[in-house]
Design a protein around this nucleic acid. Structure first.
Lengths: 206, 206, 206, 206
DNA sequence: AGTTAAGCGAGACGGTACGTCGTGTCTTGTG
DNA sequence: CACAAGACACGACGTACCGTCTCGCTTAACT
């Protein structure tokens, strides 16, 4: 699983992607190769996981030479991150009438997706890789921040309805609502369930 | 940096450590070897980082055979985690008179340690490795949970002083106070500073 | 160095050269491209040797697309052989009055050229390549046989002068006069000098 | 086929072999690995030829890691040369009563072995490789020179019998008897047969 | 004048092999 | 038994070539 939160990353720049060179000289890159690589990446992530995905395997599964992959991305992790950003559908934005209900429904959806064991090693893997690769770090951060969009939408609605004060510290609220999930999942391994989400919302909406 | 929070893990069980075999047969293990390995591990973590630390390098630096390392630990990551637990000094427990001040002082200390770039890839590396190794996962989780001791002490004092209600949800408060730090550092890359800590405390102590 | 023996191969067929197609349709091939490729080939052979000469490097040095090279020749080795045949000036035909002196002068010239280290790996490389490519083999053989012309001229004059019997086995004499040079250079690595040439002539002209 | 001439190279040094380090520390090299590698090399040379023999294929056929090969030899060619020297049986030393008959019988045997197409690209390949690797060059030269032993034995016997003058130039005679074979095979591609051998002997024994 | 066929520089493509590295295990001789 | 040394099987890495294949353009010769 890659993301703890929601909204897609539509048109965001992908810094760790190798520049496709806007020049029009020479044979253009084959668009099907991009697709095939992304598809093969997602397939293999589900079949053999992040640790079992080697560049040789990926190339042969995508029917592509290794050089074709390295021409497009810097590293295995950049490929994986790109595939994730391309593929990973955002969670729906709930609209239940109250901020409390919206948050509860959304966090439940996060938990549901967060609990699928398959691929739950992808994000930790990318985090680790990004420690050694600034470009990857930037791209991953950008992606993860973009996933806060849904919860920001919910909070903005809450302010509009007067459920939160107009000067509420939205940035901090986002971190408080999502941070504990990431902390439990990545760091302490403590379990996360619906009740946990309820109590968290109680803190934010007293 | 390895830990986001405080107290040491002195006598805690280390599941991923290979059992030293209580039997008394044969030549006993050399205690200096343990020390040399831990020392070499910490040296290399600072010199070449987690990615540059190979078992061959570690063995030769410690003046030890590789088998001597594997006799004691399951994997490279288990060695690193052990070295960390052995070495990493806990942050002091503040006592400023009020819960608010205690939390502020403590979180400032966490931030100060959290910002040292050197070795800031160790925890992410261990998290990733623990995805593939249950024993490591258990050991790492145990360690990270143990680091919550300081903050729990502070909260307990706060309850005793009446600064928090007697039925306060301590488990959750701990996660709310630390989770956002982990989230920013590991996931979004957003900056963390003293002001951030202040605002966080405001949420918990309205 | 490419050849152990003499005469040029002016108009000889070059089987491994791709047929330029006598049809006149379409844009004609650019003659400067041929020249540029041959020139770049010789430059690179001197600069980086046969092993360092890659088709990408050659194309970029010649300012030409790789397809332009492959349109003209089958393989890298065919290019090299062509460049050699085009460039390599034949040794002069001596005329000292006696067969013995002629042979001595000629063989000394062969030795002088044979000792230049630069490019001395070209012939071995072509020989090896010709093991896997019949067209190249034919072209190389033809070239190398053509280099016997000078020595055949000398022997013919010797027969005319009565220095050799009219029924002398010229084919064999050629091989005996040149073979030991090739053998030492390619196979045993034994040194070759003027004295060696003298003694060889003594065998042929008792 | 690797050699144009005869005697084995019993105890000759093999400079291109990586030094096995006379030190007695650590686990000794597995002798079966050496055997398996040599056996697999010869098998593959017959099955796929020199060009089809890759290090990965060789390692997997020998049931050995690539590092185990590179620990012992510098390059693919050094392995091949070693396998050849280890395996290639020398031609028998004829004893027909006269030097002329001995030479004829021996050269016929050389021709017979020389004509087997299988593996006839090995020597050219090694020659080429030795242009880029001094150690290999030395080893190959040493090997090829050692193969002159048989013919030297025959010539020595001829001198003892008075068939050759006592001061005959043996070094040169060896080159004259073998050189033309190498020259035709490697350079001009001209055919070599029994008649050619007969005429060659006529030159040496007038 | 328009059409057609081929050449052209650039560079992407699928493959294959390279030689190196790291892991965790195994095997010596020596305590 | 433990130990230092180091060999071992495995398998991934990222690079370098090869020879082919598009692109968007010339550049003629044939309509």
């Amino acid at each position: 699983m890659s993301a703890i939160e929601g909204e897609p990353s539509h048109l965001a720049p992908v810094p760790s992607r190798v520049a496709p060179v806007p020049t029009r000289r020479g044979r253009p890159r084959r668009a099907e190769a991009d697709e095939a690589i992304v598809r093969a990446t997602m397939e293999l992530l589900h079949e053999v996981g992040v640790a079992g995905l080697s560049m040789d395997l990926l190339a042969s599964r995508a029917g592509v030479g290794k050089a074709t992959i390295y021409r497009r991305w810097d590293s295995k992790e950049a490929v994986i991150l790109h595939a994730l950003r391309t593929t990973d559908a955002p969670l729906p934005v709930p609209d239940e009438g109250t901020l409390r209900r919206d948050l509860e429904v959304y966090l439940d959806a996060v938990i549901a997706r967060y609990h699928q064991g398959r691929g739950s090693d992808i994000l930790p893997h990318l985090i680790e890789a990004s420690c050694y690769d600034g470009r990857l770090r930037a791209s991953l951060d950008e992606h993860n921040r973009s996933r806060q969009a849904t919860i920001r939408t919910l909070l903005a609605r809450g302010i509009a309805r007067g459920e939160l004060p107009a000067d509420a510290d939205v940035d901090l609220l986002v971190d408080v609502l999502i941070g504990p999930f990431a902390y439990r999942r990545l760091v302490t391994g403590a379990p996360v369930d619906t009740d946990f989400a309820r109590r968290l919302v109680d803190i934010v909406l007293p």
